[in-house]
Design a protein around this nucleic acid. Sequence first.
DNA 1: GCAAGGTC
Length: 612
Amino acid sequence: MKVIIAEKPSVAREIARVFGANTKKDGYLEGKGYTFTWAFGHLLQLAPPQEYGFYGWNIRNLPMLPQKFKLSVRKVKTKDGIVEDPAVRKQLDIIQRLFDEATEIIVATDAGREGELIFRYIYYYLKCKKPFKRLWISSQTDEAIKNGFRNLKPGTEYDTLFNSAHCRSQSDWLVGMNATQALSISCGNRSVLSLGRVQTPTLAMICARYLENKNFVPQQYYQVSIQLDKDGQVFKAISAKSYKTKEDAETILEKVEDIASGFPNGGHITSVEAKPRKEPPPLLHDLSSLQQEANKKMGFTAEQTLGILQNLYEGKLITYPRTGSRYIGDDVFAGIPELISKYKDHPEFGKQATFLTGHKLGKRSVNAAKVTDHHAILPTGEPAYQLSGDRQAMFNLVVGRMLESFHQECIKEITKITIESGSTFTASGTVISSAGWRSVFNEADEEKKDEENASLPKVKRDENLPVVDKVLLEKQTKPKALYNEATLLKALETAGKEIEDDELRYAMKDSGLGTPATRAAIIETLIKRDYIKREKKSLLPTDTGLAVYNIVKDQRIAQAELTGSWEKRLEEIRSGASVNEFQEEIRTYTRSITQDLLKSELKVAEPHQPIK
DNA sequence: GCAAGGTC
């Protein structure tokens, strides 16, 4: 009997379906001489410090550098404290029994570094010695699965991938556990002051932006706005220049040739420019873009969005949500017309779905090379009945975005009118001449400035129009906005793009900080540590957060570059470079940061949480 | 009591 193990139940089910196996058993599926079982993500984790004899949080244990790491079963928090997750234990027992009976093991965890780690930790924990083959596919259509099975690779081909994954895992443990204990102990051991490769740069970004915002000195400046009348249609124009002093602006104001000053037609049109601008449809959603959108439109936190999406996914209404790709392959695209046609009667989207079934679809989101472990988020086409408000709203974002993505360009006409009336004024307005994808949600453009005109009348060069009103505008320069969940997620995704070192920037180019699956959890961790708090929609540092930031802000652990340098080395390990060398560097770094942190003091008198 | 990674 051959055993296939997937990363999660949904993938095992898909593969089993392709094989025509449909006997359901407890923890696996069976049929056609195969069994199809699964993990639930990481079932095993690196064992905590006490399993190496490092008891309590004690300076004598630091730095903690286990000679050999152990694995332990994933834990879960209950009212009786932290215990082994019984569901995980049960699944491990099932996998063990299946492996024992297996003539061959086929690894079908996700095609990537963590997928490899998920399997290998199970394999080594169960002390399995049987050889295994690797299924390596990047989409889960029938054809891709069949093809993958015709091209199974020897398991050993992925040994270096496992090495890099294991190094990532150990390095995060060494740096995170030691830095956390060192900082907490040196600050009096009154509360957990955690540090880590991802959470600390994230905290630093929030703190730096907060301080920049708080210390920003706004500059006062002035402009003059006038209103013109074209056959009864009034529109706004604003002075081309802005002025540092009120006096300068008042001079300009007085020079305006408006009706009240005795000029019946004092607005002289000197130029009219109209340019069409094409706006391509947006890409399909990945998790991060959907979290950002749901935060902007509905105010959901990243964690709430993830929870709702997981729920829709378990109800088979949407495809896998924790994806980092905004593309689909040609195989999935082939099914899109049929999928869209299922929404022809949808109360909100029916009209656009019907429109699209009669038109050639845009292919901006179709690119097989940009599909990694999972493709972009799509509805499955299953009918969705009586969803709760939140789930319905989220589902609509997914369906709506699908329609947008395969829709046509939006064509806008951007008009700029220049007017002389004592000095130079400009009026601008944007008119949508063909809505294209924008007709799906039919929402107003987000970033419309105050001075923009919703529509402009048709005017010609050399026309003279009456100026019916004029006003002095007092304005201030604005600081960069504080982070909210949407902008922070975006910043985490693009973290590393500003790194000067070409190699480090390259190493981070596809990753950023954290992963789609973990970013919501990172934000929640910072909140749980009382490092940051939500205030309205913004994320603000607390006094504790700022104090920790002050201690570590110049250290490598507070910088995205640390991830860049690890990613570079991990990629080298994947292509065969020495594991020991990197591990030794990490140990050296762990010793040094532990030493540094043990000297620190928390310079804030904030109330601490008692130790549990 | 700690990391970051994955998932139900």
